[in-house]
Amino acid sequence: MEEEPSDQTAETLEQNEETATPIETVQGTVTSGITPTSVEIPSLNINAPIESLGLTETGAMDVPEDGETVGWYNRGAKPGARGNAVLAGHVDDYTGPAVFFDLKELNIGDEVVVYGERDEALMFEVVKMERYPYDDAPIRDIFGYTNSQRLNLITCTGEFDRVERTHRERLVVYTELKE
């Protein structure tokens, strides 16, 4: 009794190999993102141009020179692709509030819209907000690979450390692509 099904399996396998020639081609799934040009956060009234940026000489993610532009980390994922796409914006400039000053006011579920070169629009939703010490953030979780289609927004928060000349903390807003 037990031999029969196993024989069948062997037969099926053999058949498979024999009939391998007319195999129907399957198309796999590939996700690719967009090259972002601007970002809009309706609940905070933010609408800002995006600049493509890499690393500084010391290996930090580079930031825009002015307070009104948002930087996209071009060595990471594109928004919409699987992985972590990262946008960074200043909380303040030398004289007052900058583009991401109100970022801490976001709530889980709020929307972030990213526009691409060909006017594509992708809508993301806030799923998590975390604060980290400026020198001890989980870089890999923020910049590394993820199977989700994530967009992470970074700005500074906490006290401004005049010795280190940087805010003591970073705020990371994790968002995910809405279907």
Partner: peptide, 16 residues
């Protein structure tokens, strides 16, 4: 290709 440090996203203009 990953940064070794977080971006310096503030210049201190709104600090106390």
């Amino acid at each position: 290709a990953m940064p070794s440090e977080m971006p310096a996203t503030g210049m201190g203009g709104t600090a106390d």
